[in-house]
Design a protein around this nucleic acid. Sequence first.
DNA 1: AGGGTGACGATCA
DNA 2: ATGATCGCCACCC
Length: 113
Amino acid sequence: MKQKLKKSRSDIQVHMLAQIAKIPRGKVSTYGAIARAVGIPNGARQTARALHGAHGVPWQRVVGAGGAIKLQGELAFEQRFRLQSEGVTFRGRRVNMKLHEYRFAKAKAGRKT
DNA sequence: AGGGTGACGATCA
DNA sequence: ATGATCGCCACCC
């Protein structure tokens, strides 16, 4: 029996958005971490792709590796502003990941719970 | 069917 | 720390 149906590529984005929506206020995650959470080890770009066309999701809580804001122009400014409003602290131009990195349950990790 | 693109990530100079 | 280059994966034309 199939343990896992091949999900449409579009579904992947839906799953990503679902994970992003789970990030609690005051916390942030990275494109790569979200990708891994849905089973795509190197799909950081797909996370960005999903966010680009998404709506109603806390996109501000998604940052690049190391807490770097990958957006440009006003969007970068807005993201930082919104995060600070949620209580997220920065360390220079990056989010202080030591305090705000949110950990997802990985999709394929050998976890036994 | 083929080629270019991107809200990325890691590595190298 | 900054800039350039390559690799990844799904989307768009």
